[in-house]
Every structure is written in C-alpha cells, then in structure tokens.
Design a protein around this nucleic acid. Structure first.
Lengths: 326, 326
DNA sequence: TTGTACGCGTTATCAC
DNA sequence: GTGATAACGCGTACAA
C-alpha cells in the first residue's frame, strides 16, 4: 500500500480511503489511485485489515461431517442448506470457514472466537449437543443453530416446523385408517424428536393406534437399510411408516420390499425433505417439504444481527406435505 | 499477549515461544506460562499471526454451488469429497475457506491470493473453465484440481481414471452383445468427456455399434429426468445406457420405465460413483466406483507441496466396476 | 480534501 | 534460555 501511495503521489491513508470507498476523497484522486492499484495488481492484505479492525469478516459453519462421511450422508438436504448459507454470506462479504477442527467443547468455540478467526458460528443441527449449546449461549458468543426451535431455547434457533411435519404425517395415517405406525430416525436429534412428537400428537385420542420406533445411531443410508431389514424380520409389520428423510424412506422401501412388504399396498409412507428423486421414485414418495431456499439467508441474517450486538429471535419456517403415491 | 507476559513475569517473545511449542524454552517457564494463559482464557490472535508470518494457513475450496443448488445436486459424491478435504486440512491445521465469492477470472484468484486470505486453492471439477485453469497455472499460484487428468495438463490434477471407467462400461456392454449405446452426461466437463471417450474406445473395432449421446447442461436430477423422458419418446431405444452418476442413473431408470423400457430386461445400465443407495435400488445399479476416501488427502498433500514451493505431479486414482443387476 | 503519527498483536532478529 | 526491538500492512485520530 505504501508503494501504491508513492506511485500515485498521495499518502497512505488516502489510498486506504479510496479502497474503502470513502466519500472523503475527490473523484479525481480516487480514479487515479484505483488505476495505479489495478495496474500493479494490488490487493489489500486481509490479515492486516482484520487485525486492525478486530473483525474477521468470517463466519464458521459447523457441520458434523463425522455423521455424514463415508456413505454416512443422510440426504442432499444438508448440502442445499450449505449452498444457501454460502450464498447469503457472499452477499454480505463474509468468508465461510467450514467446520474448523477441534470444536468439541465450549472452550474451543470461545478460543476460536477470541483468536478472531471467526466473528460467529452457524451450527447445522443440534445433534446430541444440547448441553454444549446452552453453555455456548451463556458464553455470549454470536451463534445460530439450524434445527429444532423450542419455546425455552436460550439461543437463536432457526428451523422448519418439525412438530407440524410430524403431525401432518400422523393425520394422513389416521385419515387412511392406519393402526400400526412406525417412526424411523434418531430421536437424539431434537428436530427429529419433534417430528416423532408430532406424529404421536396426531395419534392422540384415537384408540388402538400403536407407534413403534426404529432408532438409528446415524443418518447413513446403509445403516438405515440394514436396520430396516432386521426390523421387518423381527417385529410386527407396520401399516404406516414415517422416516426422518427421503433417503431413509428409500432405504426402508427397499428393505421392506425384499420381505414382501410393499408400499402403497401394504403400508403408507411419508418421508422428509422432498428431495428431487422422491418425485420419480417407484413408488413416488409422499414427503414433508422443508424450505431450504430461504433457510440460509435467514440463518445468516440472524447471525449478523448478533455479531452487531443486537439480539435475534428464533424463527420457524413453513412446512407442508407433498402427497404422492405412498 | 502483553498481559500474559506481565502476569507470568516473562517477556512477550517468551510467551510466543511457549505458545508455538518452541524447544528453546525451559519446561518450568513453559508450564508456568501455559497455566496463566489457560487461566485467562487467552487465545493467540490469528490475524496478527497471519500478518506477521505472511501465511494464511488457510486453503480456499472452490466448488460450483451454482450447478448444485436448488435441486441441482448431482450426487452426494461432491459432498464426500468435501468431507475428505476438510479432514485432511484439519490434520495439517489449515483452515478451509469454502467457495469464496467472485472467483470468475484469473485476476480474482490472484487478488485473493495476494490479499493473503488463502495460501492456495482446491478446485472441485474443471467444469467449463479450461482456459481459466491454464491461465491460473501461468500465474504461479498454488492450486490443484479434482477432475480429468490428461497428459499435457499444465497444472496438478487429481482424479479417477475416467477413461478406464468408461471403457469398463463399454466392455461390459460389448460382452453382453449390446449394439445401441447411450451416453448420458454433460461432456463440457472434461472428466465426463473422458468417460464418454472410454466408452467409445471400447466400441472400436466392433461393427454395428451406435453410440447416442444425451447431452445435459447441468447435473440436476430433475433436468436429467425430463431430458430422459424426452429422449425415450423421440429416439431409438438404447439397449445399453451409461450415465455420469448414479443419481442420473436413477433418473433415467424412472423415466424409461414410464415409457415401458425396462432395465435389465430391455437395456443394460452402468452408473458412476457407487453411492450407497445404488446397491439397494430396484434394480440394483451396476456402477463405477471412485475412491473418495483417499481423494481428499491426496489433493491436500499435493497442494501443500506446492504451497511450500515444491512441484507436485498429477495423480490418477484406481477405478473399478461394481456389477449388480443392471 | 489530504497528510502525519500511531497502534492493532504477533513473530523474527539479534544481543545477552 | 531469555529479553529488547523492530516490522508485518492496515485504519483511525487528529491536524492541516
């Protein structure tokens, strides 16, 4: 920057002002400086900038690759969410720091924040980290969470109306006269627990409805498939199934089919996320849609408010059921 | 850091040495300083560190969200690749800067590099950016590319043996006596073009084999499905189909089935990537496997070599066919 | 509208 | 083994 100043016959601060679009500089000198800067391929050193401003202009996005790795991917859903966040951060000229290593306890988040590597955090899914999140809220560090939105959450959470999603599935089962329901998913994840709760709520007041649960430790397709194979062999056959994702729905359909248990003839099925292949799967999968398109933008907006020391309220996104063949 | 130095009764450089595991410091003072640092929740300011060292300890990973967004996701494949890269970077204590905005021409990459926001780039897929990549190589900026590995590439590329992948599919079709083949994919992407070339190579010397091509502009599931519906209605029916991904294979199977054209009875099909659902799809999909598990580590290793001013050679990863029902 | 002087928090260099 | 000092490149007071 010194060089540019010298070449342009101005002082260093003037160059700085030009580069920051300061109105305090005459059009003439601005153009002059800009031209010289461009000609010399000059780019502002972002680390010096960040040091001086005590701002990283950078947001850490934490996602549990562990439970998504090596075939452990639940659904393209998370990926779409990430794409949305990436885009929203671009617009605000914030860098996206993806899943920095070693974030296991609160102190790790605090350290990263204090080291000015990130101004805030976006956590994708509460997972089984409820206690961590409560502590994090107490640490007064800017962060938002995608996942379950519950009344007394001490932090800003954004997510779909998972309770409604579950209830929609249950109401459909009930309208169809189904009696033996099966919920498939890992209820250690609060957003998935909410879906199960919604399902249960829909069954309330009706006699004779039994809800089984097929618990899973991960979102992996293969695990879901294997557990579904096992389930159908050792338990009463359900006449209605509600899965935590469309990919899981496909796993269940395949597993059950091999045991001669077919949808839609033998059981109804509702998936989650409305991923594109669901519409053309055989049979076409009935599912609950989450609005990923706006999710990223909302998460980023809330977080940036908190970074600017304001408070942000949790938000629930609309949810609806897409009825297809199953 | 001044504070810590004062509290520990040592000088600032000593604190720095302790925090950097320098061997030049006595065990006693090290423990003392560490304890004080921890007690005060001290974390080294990374921006100051980066400024001083002229190193970002950070790698930008560029992926084309555009062609993966809003249902445009081809396959969980890219996601697995990303997970592998993330893990490999963690090990080397490098930050992962995800898809920084505005990287459209060489100057943008150069600017980001000069601004010391990233020490290097990992590009996922050449896409249609061949010219850009050649220019980038000339700009002497550390970067590696996941995608097609071809003889005269002027930069370091890492990828599967796409030519072999295509040939394996072709050889299978030929052994089965298939005559009318169809390739489905966007050959603007060099790695996909290689697969098509491998398929063609396998047909060589055989009389009467016709290879049609269903060109696509994106990797989106829905586009693939729609184009497949259109194709089967307006073109001769293929007795062998080779798709650029397993997800695309599912789209084609669904589309063709609605026209009464069934696999494996009416045509053979080979997909790509061996994603978990392929094994249990109905029918189970024959596919080409890419070794994503080691891909991330190799990309990162090569790139770090280049960051350290060494040169790195392109590498081709092993590839094999998984034969299933189709 | 522009320039001068300083400090952000770290590490490298040298001396002790 | 440890300490003093300077410098990395920028933005911000304040003065002109």
């Amino acid at each position: 920057m010194d060089d540019i100043a010298r070449l342009a016959n101005v002082s260093k601060p003037t160059v700085s002002r030009v580069l920051n679009d300061s109105p305090l500089v005459s059009a003439k000198t601005r153009d002059h400086v800009l031209q010289i800067a461009r000609a010399n391929g000059y780019a502002v050193n972002r680390n010096a900038q960040r040091l001086r401003q005590a701002r990283a202009h950078s947001i850490a996005v934490v996602l549990d690759f562990g439970s998504h790795r090596s075939g452990a991917i639940g659904d393209p859903f998370v990926f779409e969410l990430l794409a949305g966040i990436s885009e929203a951060l671009s617009v605000r000229r914030q860098d996206l720091l993806l899943s920095p290593p070693g974030l296991v306890e609160v102190a790790d988040f605090v350290d990263l924040y204090r080291s000015r590597a990130a101004d805030g955090f976006i956590l994708l899914g509460q997972g089984a980290r409820g206690a961590l999140l409560r502590d994090l809220a107490r640490a007064a560090i800017p962060f938002v969470v995608w996942g379950a939105v519950e009344p007394n959450t001490p932090y800003c959470a954004v997510g779909s109306d998972n309770l409604l999603g579950g209830r929609l599935a249950g109401e459909r089962f009930r309208a169809m006269g189904k009696r033996r329901w099966l919920f498939v998913g890992n209820t250690d994840h609060p957003e998935i627990a909410l879906r199960a709760a919604g399902l249960r709520a829909a069954a309330e007041g009706a006699d004779g409805i039994v809800i089984d649960e097929l618990r899973l430790d991960s979102m992996a397709y293969s695990l879901t498939y294997e557990r579904a194979v096992h389930h159908i062999a050792h338990h009463p056959r359900p006449d209605a199934v509600f899965t935590f994702s469309d990919t899981a729905a496909m796993a269940v359909i395949s597993a059950f089919r091999e045991a001669g248990h077919l949808t839609p003839d033998d059981y109804a099925l509702v998936g989650y996320n409305n991923i594109p292949p669901s519409a053309h799967f055989t049979p076409a999968i009935t599912t609950i849609e989450q609005q990923t398109d706006i999710a990223g933008a909302i998460l980023v907006e809330k977080l940036m408010q908190m970074v600017d020391r304001a408070t942000a309220r949790s938000a629930v996104l609309p949810t609806r059921m897409i009825v297809r063949e199953t």
